[in-house]
Nucleic acid binder design. Structure first.
Lengths: 219, 219
DNA sequence: AATATTATTTAGACAAATCTAAATAAAATA
DNA sequence: TATTTTATTTAGATTTGTCTAAATAATATT
């Protein structure tokens, strides 16, 4: 199966968004890839043709076993390169994502096998996320943590522990809701506040009080 | 200057073919990139627009100083990755070209700077070819050697030391002439013969007697 | 249930990179 | 020099991945 970079990116996004057995919406993929829903529909037809996704008009998208296998290969490549950048080239964990995003598309079984070996066959990447093995086996991802304790850089809001309407109102005003993706820009130790950013919007700061109550999972 | 992978590959080919100050022909580039002359003409217009090449209809192509600068960056990336693959991942020199061909298009100044450092800032790649430094400075390439002593994998025929017509006739029959590119497939120690391949043609073997008289330079 | 809103798809267009076939220019040869 | 051959360019088409605007389906709201 020879995939283009664009196709690989779609597969990866669908994998990322398809938590458990749910189906992924056109809109969600478009948002994830910073593209338009119409483009997602177009690509969905191609990936269905290649039997990498299940897709019926208006019914959402999900990976086939074959699609999932490929997604895991891409995730494996991405995370191994992140390890390389951090462990061997002394990058810090927040700089590696963009570069790994490119390196992950270099396809060579042998390269990845040897890279993994060279790195000591790590099982988690610098963000703590598990690295699938060569057979695509991956350990279950971490349980939810509150935003103030999260270690990953890119997070998805998975819940709010304080249901007070004032918090929800505040989050709503900031554009934070279930499924919102956040990037951690900086943590300030003096007050445990955290600066976060939602894709394409200016960064803003959340107090410890708030971040304690936002439950997230890393992406 | 943000270039596509295709544009980078054209720049690299032109650099490779443009030895000294000569101008490069449409056909030569098409052959090098295994594409069609018409496609080269199309791309030439784009690269001229971007001021990376000098190009006038029917007059051949040459890099501008800016184009050359970019070419050297690509060559640098390619050769550093080859070092990495051989030195760190234990690839053999004849396996690395294709993979480096992909890795070279990952653009990140910082990545390349750190990779170079990690490798001990090597000045030649595993084939003995010089690696341009961060400023694009490159040491003069090696003088011609006879094919039986060449260490590089991809060679270009630069001359024949024995001018006997029987040799020239033989070479002609094999499709070897000035400027022909050869890939070394294998060397056989028992008789010092060498198996070579011309792009897209089946491999064939040259005796020591013949290879001694073919002067080559590495590409 | 009727209507409004949101999500998704279709239709038609565009840019990049390529191709083939035909036209034209340059070079080689008779 | 005239002619043939080779190299190069143009014209028009194709594929991939994308877009906008309009149409349609699904969902939410009154």
């Amino acid at each position: 199966m020879n995939l283009t970079v664009a196709e690989e990116n779609y597969i990866k996004s669908i994998y990322k968004l398809q938590d458990g057995n749910t189906v992924v919406s056109t809109n969600a993929i478009a948002y994830e890839l910073a593209t338009k829903p119409a483009s997602v529909t177009d690509m969905a037809k191609k990936l269905k043709e290649k039997k990498l996704i299940d897709y019926e008009k208006y019914q959402g998208i999900s990976l086939t076993p074959e699609g999932r296998k490929i997604a895991l290969q891409i995730v494996r490549r991405h995370r191994l390169w992140e390890c390389f950048l951090v462990d061997k080239l002394s990058f810090s964990w927040n700089e590696v994502h963009e570069i790994a995003e490119e390196l992950e598309h270099v396809r060579s079984e042998k390269l990845i096998t040897r890279l993994s070996n060279f790195l000591g066959n790590p099982t988690t990447d610098p963000h703590g996320d598990p690295i699938p093995d060569a057979m695509g086996r991956i350990s279950k991802s971490q349980p939810l943590v509150s935003l103030d304790k999260a270690t990953a850089r890119r997070l998805e809001v998975a819940g709010v522990s304080d249901q007070s309407s004032s918090l929800l109102e505040f989050l709503n005003a900031k554009g934070i809701r279930l499924g919102t993706q956040l990037d951690i820009i900086e943590r300030y130790e003096f007050d445990n506040s955290v600066e976060v950013k939602i894709r394409n919007q200016p960064a803003f700061t959340l107090s410890e009080q708030v971040s304690k109550n936002i439950m997230v999972k890393s992406l």
